[in-house]
Design a protein around this nucleic acid. Structure first.
Length: 104
DNA sequence: AAAGTGACGCATT
DNA sequence: TAATGCGCCACTT
């Protein structure tokens, strides 16, 4: 069965370790094409699988998504901080938390 | 069937 | 420094 772009994206996102984050562009590059950053956003947006750690994906500047807004708070920030990822002002310190994919 | 849309990122103006 | 344009995929009109 041939894997389409979305499945590749979901697979990469699922590999992001707890306590770390990846940027949309990074996921796109790992999924096969660095120009798919926008597609990654769309893929996560329509994703219904709750086991997919989509909260570990932020912009390249470390900014969390507005799509997680929930009565005044941002759910993504809460999830990240529960994992030990500090995000003051909704900004993650990429220098410190960005996922460096392990190459095997 | 064709055009519009969206959790982005980078080059150009 | 900020605004604009384009790439790329799947889904909806």
């Amino acid at each position: 069965m041939k894997e389409n772009t979305f499945q590749k994206i979901y697979r990469v996102v699922g590999e992001i370790p707890c306590g770390q984050v990846a940027s949309y562009g990074q996921v796109a590059a790992l999924a096969g094409n660095r120009r798919w950053a926008r597609v990654v956003g769309y893929a996560l947006n329509v994703n219904k699988d709750p086991s997919l750690p989509c909260h570990r994906v932020v912009t390249r500047e470390g900014k969390v998504s507005d799509a997680f807004l929930e009565n005044g708070r941002n759910r993504q920030i809460e999830l990240l901080e529960e994992e030990g990822v500090a995000c003051p002002g909704g900004i993650v310190d990429m220098k410190k938390y960005q996922w460096k994919r392990t190459v095997f």
